[in-house]
């Protein structure tokens, strides 16, 4: 197990190296940051040169990359071209809201999708299943920005139960979490339903029933417990992509997350912020996947992580 984790962490180093290469060079194809900075006025050539010199943009690309990597090894992500703040501080500030929103979204998705998926499977072919499947389809088909705006109109503007935007206490977390979770719950409910259907046909479910235990105990303890294995994989991957992929929701709700920060940085060609943001997200994603992989051995005793033992 320990050996496995170490091996995975070594992989991580190579992945980060590859990502840093791609990000570093690709953003430099998008245009000159200094030109954007001076969009408004008519700068002198000297002024432009001075800024370029200060930001280290006059060095050859390969040297710039070298400097970037050297800093990265010491966990120094550089400073923002725009604000001059250390990128690590900026990310640290934004990471909290992002993780919170991702967790909120997943929580909402679980609360909706687990009951819907389980009921759909158990009551297969009945009205319950029909509505469950319609619900999943709606969840999958809704554009999430539309849902977000609808939620704001109904619950923030009309009813004024929750704030429409911003990041201020748990109340402000509710609407964006629902917007995010509803979309996710559609896919999740389908996954839970199909896994449950497959498992309910297994012989050990007949065995469990033949023991005379209550129906819901059979469904939850024997069937759903097994359906958790594919579900956890899905949620793990989703959590990773939610960290970086909630941009639209963050935009709609003015949520101060990492996704929005990176989008802003791209618009402004703020190289260090883009690089830092992408690399930190990538590392988080790898970490989450590692945790998901490790969780298998707890969920499914047949899986021994790392192929050790026996």
């Amino acid at each position: 197990m320990i050996q496995y984790i170490i091996r995975r962490l070594i992989h991580t180093v190579f992945v980060v190296l590859a990502i840093s290469l791609i990000v570093f060079f690709s953003i430099r194809l998008t245009g000159d940051p200094v030109a954007i900075m001076f969009q408004a006025g008519e700068p002198t050539k000297e002024a432009i040169e001075e800024v370029r010199e200060n930001l280290g943009l006059n060095e050859p690309l390969i040297v710039q990359y070298g400097i970037f990597m050297k800093q990265l090894i010491t966990f120094d992500l550089g400073e923002s071209f725009r604000s001059g703040l250390p990128v690590s501080t900026m990310i640290a500030e934004r990471m909290g809201p992002t993780v919170l929103l991702a967790l909120g979204g997943i929580l909402v998705a679980i609360l909706i999708a687990f009951p819907v998926g389980i009921l759909s499977a158990v009551k297969r072919g009945t009205a319950v299943d029909f509505f469950g499947r319609i619900f999943s389809l709606l969840g999958i088909s809704f554009p999430n920005f539309w849902l977000g705006i609808m939620l704001i109109i109904v619950f923030a503007v009309q009813l004024q139960w929750f704030p429409a935007s911003g990041y201020d206490g748990w109340k402000s977390l509710v609407l964006p979490s629902i917007a995010l979770g509803m979309i996710l719950s559609g896919i999740l409910a389908r996954l839970v339903r199909s896994s449950m259907l497959e498992i309910l046909n297994q012989q050990y479910i007949s065995t469990a029933k033949s023991k005379g235990i209550k129906d819901w105990v059979v469904i939850i303890r024997h069937a759903f417990r097994n359906a958790l294995i594919p579900t956890t994989t899905f949620l793990g991957i989703q959590f990773g992509s939610l960290l970086g992929g909630t941009v639209i929701i963050e935009q709609v709700f003015s949520w101060p997350g990492v996704g929005r920060m990176i989008i802003d940085a791209i618009n402004q060609r703020d190289y260090p912020v883009i690089q830092g943001g992408v690399i930190v997200l990538a590392m988080l994603m790898i970490l989450v996947n590692l945790i998901v992989d490790l969780s298998y051995s707890f969920l499914d005793p047949r899986i021994k992580v790392g192929g050790s033992d026996k």
Partner: peptide, 23 residues
């Protein structure tokens, strides 16, 4: 009926490989 199952009438199945819950 459920309470009869397992207590008064019990059953074993054809496939011992899949008759027990793996988790």
């Amino acid at each position: 009926r459920r309470k009869v199952r397992g207590k008064e009438i019990a059953m074993i199945f054809q496939e011992p490989m899949t008759s027990l819950n793996p988790v």
